[in-house]
């Protein structure tokens, strides 16, 4: 069963094989939706479960996400309007004054792996930039990261700016010194202590 082979290739972190098998399936006329959902996304769901269970480690999960993305790139032009719709769009960045991005990158990659459309604004991102991009891209969620206690106030500035701009986007925050209490205090819509939690949180907010 060829779709199962694609699933297995993602589970084996084999980007080249995923590409090759996806191309073969497309050429054979297999339904695109089935390749996407049962093959690529199905594999990533299993990867997510094994990661949460502590069986897979971060570099392995990221490799699986890259393999999945390679397959997705082949399918994208072939998807119908309904199929092309992502699970949602997330604008993500590290707030003004902060240059730390490992955690933020991890969250962005995991969200992409989970089927979200991610717009990564990088580091040292001003609140206006978050607001402007979220408005342009019609973001469902704006995700803010900070590692320094000195830049946590910039999260508040951004969350307030999003509200004042009247955007429908929900705001979520994360980073080592950030807490649920701080999220409540600044009026953010959610907080997660880690990357897998952030994916779950966005799924919950979008439900």
């Amino acid at each position: 069963m060829a779709i199962q082979d694609i699933f297995n290739a993602v589970m084996a972190f084999d980007e080249d094989k995923v590409k090759q098998l996806t191309q073969t399936e497309v050429a054979a006329g297999t339904e695109i939706g089935a390749i996407l959902n049962q093959g690529l996304i199905g594999a990533m769901d299993t990867v997510g479960e094994r990661f949460s269970a502590g069986e897979l480690f971060v570099p392995e999960m990221l490799m699986a996400a890259q393999a999945m993305k390679a397959g997705l790139e082949i399918l994208k032009p072939l998807l119908s309007a309904g199929q092309a719709q992502s699970r949602g769009r997330v604008v993500i960045g590290t707030v003004k004054g902060d240059l730390h991005d490992i955690g933020k990158n991890l969250v962005a990659m995991m969200m992409e792996g989970a089927g979200f459309d991610v717009v990564d604004l990088g580091v040292d991102v001003a609140s206006e930039k978050f607001v402007q991009t979220a408005a342009e891209k019609k973001a469902d969620v704006i995700a803010l990261s900070a590692l320094l206690t000195t830049t946590m106030p910039a999260m508040q500035t951004t969350v307030t700016a999003v509200k004042e701009a009247g955007l429908a986007s929900r705001t979520i925050i994360g980073g080592a010194p950030v807490t649920q209490g701080f999220a409540d205090q600044i009026g953010a819509d959610g907080y997660s202590p880690d990357a897998p939690g952030a994916v779950k949180l966005v799924k919950k907010l979008m439900a």
Binding site: G54, F57, V58, P59, I102, G103, L106, D194, A195
Partner: peptide
């Protein structure tokens, strides 16, 4: 090093 189970 990173705690590779969490990336921290």
């Amino acid at each position: 090093c990173s705690a590779m189970r969490y990336g921290t």
